[in-house]
Simulated scan of single mutants.
Amino acid sequence: MTDPAPAPGRAGTAEGADASSAGGWLMPSETDRHECTWMAWPSAGYTLGDTPEEVAAARRTWAAVANAVIEFEPVRMVVVPADVPVARQHLHPDVELLEAELDDAWMRDIGPTFVRSRDGARLGAVDWVFNGWGAQSWASWEHDSRIGAFVTQATGADAIGSALVNEGGGIHVDGLGTVLLTETVQLDPGRNPGLIRADVEAELARTIGATTCIWLPRGLTRDYDEFGTRGHVDIVATIPSPGVVLLHDQQDASHPDHAVSRQLRELLEDARDARGQRFEVVGVPAPRTLADAEGPVDWSYINHLVVNDGVIACTFGDEQDDASLGVLADAYPGRRVVGVDARPLFDRGGGIHCITQQQPAL
């Protein structure tokens, strides 16, 4: 626990994390074929909302995402038993409902992270410890902390336990051993007190086959507010194909994320992936809307879900929507990009990627 961490902003390589010693597991790229997408239905708390209008907006938005995904691949929705009738009213009839108790509805974070055996024959599911995004005062996780195991059992995947407090929104991979992550998430004292980079890298090597960890120093500014995650990477950067990074590009100098975008671009252009190659960094311009009643927004087109033959992307009723979804279309050739209004999601602290979790096909 006292080994020195790699220099700030540099990629760290997990010792011994090659194909023969990484536990036999590898997290595939999100662009690989999926068996299905997992989601959870909003049933309580701030995610659902306090007023009839907020409740309707939450249900409408979660359903819009599920109903967009079902056009490309199966959707399995975890639902509190009492909410099965209302969920069925909103969802496409082909969406499968599975009953379990929930605290919240951010499946990316409460569900498992799926991996495959090196020979591609077995499905594994990493059940991270979930503690409400670093034991935040407003969060509850009595039920959500069990959803990883529930989903794992439902899939028949091999269960891969982990003592690391982590969420699926805190990592992005290229399927070749590269992982993007954020110092303020995995090294958050509220999540993993006392851990250093080497500890995290060793666990990611064991569980998801990571051989090269690229540490971002921080996430977007709004993500550090009350209902934020303290820096999830999945609204900041993603890897659409080996050697390419899509980066949130806040072009307005008056927004605090303008400086963040510049800092992260410099770091990523200097980083090397698991193959030892540099990245092409492609900026995805942020929405032109800069603020709402709560302050500077973190609206981001990066927080999309790649599905079989498609991309489900966030839109914001913003004049930038069409152009930035065009950047996504170029980054994912051959896939149809479908936009869903994600403003109600971002009002609650997340986006489309945050409420979904892909299960890779074997």
Rank of each mutant, 00 (worst) to 15 (best):
V244E: 01
R262N: 13
V78A: 12
V245L: 07
T182S: 12
M77Y: 06
P193C: 08
S20H: 07
A237K: 01
L181M: 10
A87I: 08
F346E: 05
L123N: 04
M27P: 03
A7R: 13
G45T: 07
I214P: 01
P74C: 09
M39L: 03
D257V: 05
E266Q: 14
G169A: 10
P217Y: 10
T315E: 00
R122M: 13
S43H: 13
D292L: 10
L26P: 00
E183S: 14
G24M: 06
A149T: 11
I302R: 01
R76E: 11
Q89W: 10
V260W: 07
H248M: 09
D158N: 03
D330I: 03
L325G: 02
H34D: 00
S43M: 06
P42E: 13
L26E: 03
S324K: 04
N67S: 05
P74L: 03
R288G: 11
A5K: 06
T155K: 13
R262S: 14
V260P: 02
A44R: 15
G228Y: 06
A82S: 15
D32A: 09
Q320N: 12
A271F: 07
D252A: 14
L204A: 00
V281W: 03
L26G: 04
T221F: 04
E269Q: 15
A342R: 02
D119P: 14
S140A: 13
E266M: 11
G310S: 14
H92W: 01
R76M: 09
T152R: 12
G169T: 03
D119Y: 13
V311N: 02
D249C: 04
V311W: 01
L328M: 04
D94L: 05
R222W: 03
G295Q: 12
N131A: 14
R230K: 13
D298S: 13
F130K: 01
T47H: 15
G190R: 11
V80C: 12
V55A: 10
A291E: 15
W106F: 01
Q186F: 12
V244F: 04
A64Y: 05
V233Y: 01
Q263H: 13
D103A: 00
T37K: 01
R348F: 06
G177P: 04
G134V: 02
G111I: 04
L26A: 07
V297R: 08
P285T: 06
G132L: 07
P4D: 15
Q251N: 06
V200C: 06
R348K: 13
Q359D: 03
V86D: 07
D3W: 08
G23H: 01
L195F: 11
V245N: 02
Y332A: 07
D249M: 05
H353E: 10
L48A: 08
Q320D: 03
D270A: 15
D321V: 07
G334C: 08
G339R: 06
R275N: 13
C354F: 05
Y46A: 12
V327H: 05
A105E: 00
L180G: 02
